[in-house]
Design a protein around this nucleic acid. Sequence first.
DNA 1: AAAATCAATGTAAACGTTTACCTTTTATCG
DNA 2: CGATAAAAGGTAAACGTTTACATTGATTTT
Lengths: 331, 331
Amino acid sequence: MASLTDVARHAQVSIATVSRVINNSDKVVPETRDLVHKAMAELGFKPNRVARRLRQKGGFRHLLGLIIPDIQNPFFAEMARGVEDVAYAHKFAVMLCNSDEDMKKEEFYIDVLQSESVDGIILPPISERDGVVLKLVESGVPVVTVDRSLAHRSMDKVEVDNRRGAFEAVDHLIKLGHRRIGLIAGRLNVSTSRERRLGYDDAMAAHKLPVASEYIRGGDFKQASGRAMAEELLDLPSPPTALFVLNNLMTVGALEAIHRRKLKIPGDIAVIGFDDLPWAEALDPPLTVVRQPAYEVGQAATELLLKRLEDPKRAETHLKLLPKLVIRNSC
Amino acid sequence: MASLTDVARHAQVSIATVSRVINNSDKVVPETRDLVHKAMAELGFKPNRVARRLRQKGGFRHLLGLIIPDIQNPFFAEMARGVEDVAYAHKFAVMLCNSDEDMKKEEFYIDVLQSESVDGIILPPISERDGVVLKLVESGVPVVTVDRSLAHRSMDKVEVDNRRGAFEAVDHLIKLGHRRIGLIAGRLNVSTSRERRLGYDDAMAAHKLPVASEYIRGGDFKQASGRAMAEELLDLPSPPTALFVLNNLMTVGALEAIHRRKLKIPGDIAVIGFDDLPWAEALDPPLTVVRQPAYEVGQAATELLLKRLEDPKRAETHLKLLPKLVIRNSC
DNA sequence: AAAATCAATGTAAACGTTTACCTTTTATCG
DNA sequence: CGATAAAAGGTAAACGTTTACATTGATTTT
């Protein structure tokens, strides 16, 4: 692969001039510029990003890091697309890593990204007091948290109004006449889970209904746990008439449990899921969900990160995007 | 961030020694090794991957490139996990890029990956005679194609036996008594589409049934086209009694069209989709599909690539994995 | 017309590693 | 005991860029 030096030799100029042409600095006369361009074309020259990143101190490295729990989760996949599209539009590349909610993996990837000297990192912390992420932030690398946030730390972040989203879902169920509403929650050390739980409580309180703890189960965000929790709830002597499931994968699990028992939705049991699914419309019946603007979260986070790179001193921005109750036919 | 030089100074040895410790070369006596380790720990030293990649000619750069059409497609998401898991197990990082089936984007990302000097690249070519990929292969970068393949080019590749998969699906439908079987295909310039189409023909021929071209539609793999094609087929004067849809996203589209018309599955119309979906079981009725071993494809491709890196001269390997007809209740 | 300024380009150092080669020390052998 | 080999560590060049600084020649100023 042709290097700067080759191009310089071929065009009979110095490497500095070639470099200036590449970075289209103004200080080069049109004729030389054309000469260099011709030489680059003839040799098929592509600037080496590695060497460039190594040398360049100021300026952009044109590389972003994105660490998510699992790319197979449609919510994160959609978010990742938001990130990638904005990055691509600015000619940034993205290194995407899956942490599997595993701190060891998260740490490995944070190390990698740092030593790849990415311009900045976007991630949802594994927990509210995720030490690895905290250390990362302290080290000065620009970080934007998405979806979840870090406790006691002011920084750029993009969240969704989880409490409000959950409130609307449960409020909707109550207005439809449901009183026994099962809640399948996620891990409680992540901020989103707790906020959604609060939204549930809010709605119950608003309608002066008691919160019965036997209707509340804690899962781990995975499909299998959604199914298991749903089964526990349906086995109750006086089972809930509606289920509110706090993420997409667990919703799929709950649906499996319901179909297994040949229960009719919404006749026998109503269901609302948190997170929209690309196939929610294709389900029978189409599923009512709290839709999070995942794509927009990714977009906004990337824009925030890019702005921070341009101006490291700018004030920290907290964005809270609104989820939307998408009413279909499962309630 | 502490550098090799800092560590060397701190441990009172030369940078060469530190480098040797890092790469645990044998030529360093235990005491010095410990000294260096201590210094590294004290300074929190992390080797800089960028500098390392720049310098190192032989040996591994520990970075792989993966270009897929769309991470939101569950098939590719699953494949990506296969790639990532194997890469992670070997301490390789993966740069993931979405091409959106757009040659311009594909080219941009290939440039990026090359100039990041990745060890190798895994990708499904956008078409059988994808010039950009062809040029990449010619340039000597190790490439493994997955899912789709390149015409007239012998190279490491991992495919799925599409023809066989399609055959089994259609054969199943025919044995169930269906005669008018609608086919919703993808772009015909990709190998998988054409092979699946051949499988359809095979099955019809095996049962001595004529292939009626009005039952065959070509889409573009996207959800919207699946829906549109399904609508066209259902509008036919003598509509098909079964639909075979050649990828997951189009299947979701077709399902939407069917529900829109309030048709019953499988009573009014039977459906088989190519590609399994994480939620296929949660559909009502659960969807019968041809399951592609996507995760295994990703795994195998990565292993192949890693082997190629270890031995650039080894014979090219063509892997053809078997899909599986997963019979649920939609036929 | 000499001096000062400016625009265009060149020179060389730096970024953080790896590695070929050289030096020093220590062990081995006849 | 001197010669030799092996082991451990050091020196410096290289990887492909960017960039501070130096150089050159032309133009303007006095």
